[in-house]
Design a protein around this nucleic acid. Structure first.
Lengths: 155, 155
DNA sequence: TCCATATCACCAATGATTGTTGTTTGACAA
DNA sequence: TTGTCAAACAACAATCATTGGTGATATGGA
């Protein structure tokens, strides 16, 4: 993701308006490696702007995703997670207890659909999700698992 | 997944009851390679049993997943998809237009988190999702995209 | 500064999934 | 076969993440 200032220009160039709320969200995402949900971003933004609405946060996150400045991930934690790191290709480690996500910047050279095995699919991209336990959860720390969508029961 | 008869025994052995509804679901899943959603299974079951409730379908699918007889997948199509093929390890091809899923039985030997790169994570499993267009969608066929969860807008 | 329009905050709606409740039914033993 | 009881059923309401209206406000180029 670019800097808040660059994003300001980018938004104006794409006929989008730059509001105080959006700049606040830009700043929050800047350097955030926690792969926050919309809700998390809203919580952080609310600390700076009491009245910012969740809808505004969703809107801005979608705009950023549309511009390719952040990536929207669905790794089965019940909420869409947003990843400001779109500059170097990477995969993800997902904690199956608390849902925390870490980037894994490793290239798997042979990760491609073998010729003839694609069943006619026109394959565009590959994502790898490693599931396991994050250091905290592995060490038996029982943090309250963040509220998770009704339907995201994992096995 | 085992045969309906074997599943009957397995359910009894695990103190679960075997009802007509459950056996109907066993039969529907048997050999199904479409990675159906709970809703799809319910639609198929309704053809045999008018009054079967969606809740019952969810319950049985969860039981089967708990027993390891089917796998619950979240590949970002907005609904949990269920995969009766748990016997040979495989990955998935997901159509980004219509959400159809195909198995890809290919082993990627170097697919592992390199030592030292795991950030303290205790990694248990790896899933690969290839995204692209299925043959129908690639050929320009514009099937009505199945209704998708509100929050599953993909970029 | 002014205007067209994007964005805001608030509230209601949506869709997948789960909780609740009162009734039915499978499993197992007498 | 029948009695018993917990498990499972169907119907309905609730939940959670996310999105759709709507009237008011603020942005950015002229």
């Amino acid at each position: 993701m670019r800097t808040p200032d660059e994003l300001t220009d980018l938004f104006r160039a794409s006929r989008r308006k730059v509001t105080a709320q959006r700049q606040c969200i830009f700043r929050i995402l800047q350097g955030d490696e926690t792969h926050p949900s919309a809700e998390s971003v809203h919580a952080a933004a609310s600390r700076e702007m009491e009245t910012i609405s969740l809808k505004t946060v969703y809107q801005t996150l979608h705009d950023l995703a549309e511009l390719g400045e952040i990536a929207a991930l669905d790794v089965g934690t019940g909420m869409t997670r947003f990843d400001p790191n779109v500059d170097d290709p990477h995969h993800h480690l997902v904690c199956r207890r608390c849902g925390s996500i870490r980037d894994l910047v490793v290239d798997f050279p042979d990760l491609a659909v073998p010729k003839g095995a694609d069943l006619g699919f026109e394959v565009g991209s590959a994502e790898v999700v490693f599931r396991g336990l994050c250091p905290s959860c592995r060490d038996g720390y029982r943090a309250p698992v963040p509220a998770v969508a009704a339907g995201s029961r994992r096995t």
